[in-house]
Every structure is written in C-alpha cells, then in structure tokens.
Design a binder for these strands. Structure first.
Length: 362
DNA sequence: AACGCGTGGAC
DNA sequence: TGTCCAAGCGT
C-alpha cells in the first residue's frame, strides 16, 4: 500500500507514546468547559458535531443549549415539525445540516430504538454523518480508537509532522486518517482526538500560533525549523460572484406583507424571504412587469429603504430594498402568501432577510 | 474531484 | 474593504 509506506516514512521515527501523553495531559488540564462536554450522551455529541461543522464554538453554544431544550431526546427531535427545527437553526447557516440531522434521527428512532449506532458502518450510513462526524461520535461518545480528522487536526499534524500536502484535497484527509490510526491512544481515544482539535483551536491557530505555550513543542518539526506559519499548505478558493436583486416589501389593502418560501432544495432551502426580482435577468424598468408575471399582482413601487449585502461562501447578493403596494390582481404563486407583520417572526428566515424585517414599520 | 452550501469574527 | 477562515457533507 502506497499510503502505508508514506505513513511509515512520516511517523516511523516519531515518539507517539510521548506525544499521546503530552497531548492528553494538556487536554485534561486545559480543556474548555463546554455544554456538550457535560457527559458522553451520544445524542448530545452528535448534535454538537453537526452544529460545529464549519462553525465557531462561540456561535454554537447558545444554539446548542436552545436546541437541547427544545429537542432533549432523539424522539423529541424525530416528532418535531421540520419548520420548527429550521427555526431553531435560523442564523446558523448550512441549513441542509438541520434537515439531514432530523432525517437521520428519525431513522435512528425507527430502526435502532433511539440508540445512536456504535457500529462504524451503520453510523456512517446516516444522512449528514461523514467521515469526520462518524469518527468524532465513535471516539467521544463510545471511546473507540477511530480518527476524527477536521481542519484543526490537519493543521496541527501538518506542523508537528511536517506534512506538506495540500489540505484542500480530499486525498490528504485520508492520509491523515491513516496517520491517526497509527498515532491514536487506545487508552483514551476521546481525549486524544479532542486534544488535537482543542490544541488547534487554542494554541496551534492558523495565523500566529502560540508555540511557546504548546505542550508538544519539543516534538514539532515545523517549530524546530521555524516554518510553523508556512504550514499547512492550502490551495485558495476562487472569489464569489455578485448577484444584484430588488427585494420588495409588498403590502396589500389589509396592510399584510408578502413573503414566500424558497424551494425545498438548494440555497437556503425551505427558508422564507421577501420576494426578490433578479436584476441580473430583469432591468429595473421591467421589474413590475416581471413581478406581475411571477405573482399575478400589479404593484406600485415606493421608496428605496436600504441596501442589504449578503455574503455567502460562494456568491454575494446585493439587494436594494424597496416598499411596494398592490394596485390590483390576485396572488397566484405556489409558495407565497400575505401575512400580518407580527407573524413574520414565526417563520425561519435567512439572515439577510432578518435584516430586512428591521426596516418594516408597523 | 470540484463545487454548492451560511454566517460572523479576526486581522 | 477585502480576505481568510471554523469541529464538513452531499453530489
């Protein structure tokens, strides 16, 4: 096996026993107190791992507490309405995480009596549980010596072992998984995995790592050569495409406001928003005509309220927000409806449209 | 394999 | 302001 040879080459002369001891002792001493570390409940570990995907600890904490209050058990989450789950996820981003999580929890309740599987293959079949999350649940909740390789782990090990592979490539993650199988503590795989991540979060940070405080400094090849800020190697992503929109706050004669639900798949799936005219396809002169074609309503545009910019990971919405009133016609749109202004807060909205709420004066 | 998928914080 | 990022996954 090619990868096995590389693993021997990289970690062959590395003192893994010493590394395990230093890492685990440091983690035991210096780990943060976090809500999902109160116990080893697999359900809580699972929720926390999904929420923490691409998301900072400080952001997750209040969402985690609220989520566990609303859905304390797998059964509670399985029985909940999907819109209620999305509302609890509102603002966290990557909303398919929430839908996949609920689908997977429903599967666990139906097939496994609500017990999160401790079998790697069964666990990995669940929606939203990829290689990282699977290893995290197995090691943290079930004390199994499985790798949980995230961005922290790749950064830390790139430096400690001086691995110069591009961590943006999937094949690199597999190399690190192989290295973890070799390095992991069979005695305490949970503290080992969490220790690597905690070290990446607190000490071995991307920009200016605190090497002087690092518990494994004397083992770190990058530090020894003074190249810790050169690692890891990561190819850059391309920049976002800008899309202009006209977002409309449309009121009818009863002073209700028009909102619509986005499609069930894709960007911001199943969330709600104010109607938007895509100015990349329609010029401003034709906006009302386009609107009539789309919604069956003749509207008169009012004043321009504000501009809202929304930056996604892969694109940017630049929205001009304007008021509008209905002149005539009847609403003809599958996923749109008029609601009283005070009802709007009951629907899950993306952040960009939460910002628009604040411009509505009752 | 590369791309679609959110958001807010740090510098 | 721009850039990069933070406990990834699905397709």
């Amino acid at each position: 096996m090619k990868n096995q040879e590389r693993i021997q080459h990289i970690a062959g002369k590395f003192d893994k026993t010493k590394f395990q001891t230093q890492l685990i002792n440091w983690f035991t001493q210096d780990q943060r107190i976090l809500p999902w570390r109160e116990n080893q409940d697999p359900y809580r570990v699972w929720i926390s791992e999904i929420m923490l995907q691409q998301t900072r600890v400080d952001t997750v904490i209040p969402y985690f507490n609220n989520f566990l209050t609303k859905f304390p058990t797998p059964e509670a989450l399985a029985e909940a309405d999907e819109q209620e789950v999305l509302k609890a996820w509102e603002g966290l981003g990557y909303y398919s995480r929430a839908r996949n999580l609920q689908n997977a929890v429903r599967e666990v309740v139906e097939k496994y009596e609500g017990i999160v599987p401790n079998d790697p293959d069964l666990l990995g079949e669940l929606k939203g549980v990829g290689p990282y999350t699977k290893g995290a649940i197995l090691s943290i909740a079930y004390d199994q010596p499985e790798p949980a390789v995230d961005g922290n782990v790749m950064r830390v090990l790139s430096r400690v072992l001086k691995v110069e592979d591009d961590i943006a490539k999937q094949s690199t993650r597999k190399l690190f998984e192989g290295l973890i199988y070799h390095l992991i503590s069979k005695q305490d795989p949970s503290s080992f995995n969490q220790g690597l991540m905690e070290l990446g979060a607190l000490i071995c940070t991307p920009k200016s790592p605190s090497c002087l405080l690092c518990p494994v400094q004397n083992q770190c090849r990058a530090f020894a050569e003074g190249i810790e800020t050169e690692l890891p190697v990561k190819s850059s992503k391309k920049k976002q495409k800008k899309l202009p929109f006209l977002a409309l706050i449309v009121r009818n004669e009863k002073n209700q406001v028009l909102i619509e639900q986005r499609p069930g798949e894709g960007l911001l799936a199943s969330l709600w928003q104010y109607p938007m005219v895509p100015l990349s396809d329609v010029d401003l002169q034709n906006a009302t005509r386009w609107f009539y074609g789309e919604y069956g309503l003749e509207v008169e545009l009012g004043e321009s309220i504000s501009r809202v910019k929304h930056v996604f990971s892969h694109l940017i919405w630049e929205m001009e927000v304007r008021t509008a009133v209905v002149n005539k016609g009847s609403l003809d749109h599958e996923r749109a409806r008029f609601v009283d202004p005070e009802q709007i807060a009951d629907f899950p909205f993306p952040v960009s449209h939460q910002k628009i709420h604040t411009h509505i004066n009752p």
